[in-house]
Amino acid sequence: MSAPLLWADGLCVAYGRVDAVRDVSLSVPEGSIVAILGPNGAGKTSLLGAIMGVLRARGDLRFRGQALAGRAVEQRVADGMSLVPEKRELFVTMSVEDNLRLGGFRRRGSADYGDTLEEMWRLFPRLKERRAQLAGTLSGGERQMLAMARALMSRPRLLMLDEPSLGLAPLIVKDIFRTVAALRQTGVSILLVEQNARAALELADHGYVLENGSVVLQGPASELREDERVIAAYLGIKTVAR
């Protein structure tokens, strides 16, 4: 088996003296969807922040076989990583189209820059309808789509999604997850952080459950779906032995 696209070993993130992520090891094989689950405050967002380079982390982190230590966020973007953050972080006073064009900032000279934009319009027709609208005036679901499209504009090998369903109504969540499933066909690998465990496991090939900053459970998504310990981790039901 070839080396995984992303590989982390013993990853730790600390805020001052407090560890948000403790000794996490995980891997994302090429072309797969990996889900990170766990209750609020488990360290999921910090983990993605560390992988993207937004947060300082200790431990070994490799992307396409190359060590990531010392590489800045924008260099990791150039390497082929892209993060859709929990807060979306859109350029709210700029148009939808400008947001997308800036998503491809690193590839601004390349020949297929325009093609990528066209592809995004195909993938997210809603956004094309609103291309001239300011990003700040979009609805929650549209914002999430714009954030995803913006992240894809850099043609990443690895797309990281932080809570794409956060604050969205169930119908829109379904839409978002359909899009994520469709993305798999384009060959991009996906690392998905989700609180919505059922939907995430429906989609993913592999899952990790985080609690208090550490991985407490991992396995193929098909197994985790049936594992009552996942539910226990969320609702604190003690009837199931740990």
Binding site: S165, V173, K174, R178, N196, A197, R198, A199, Y234, I237
Partner: peptide, 16 residues
Amino acid sequence: IQQNPAVLEAYLGSAA
């Protein structure tokens, strides 16, 4: 609350 199906759904989501 632990038995409430609406709560369970809110926390774990419905299968997509």
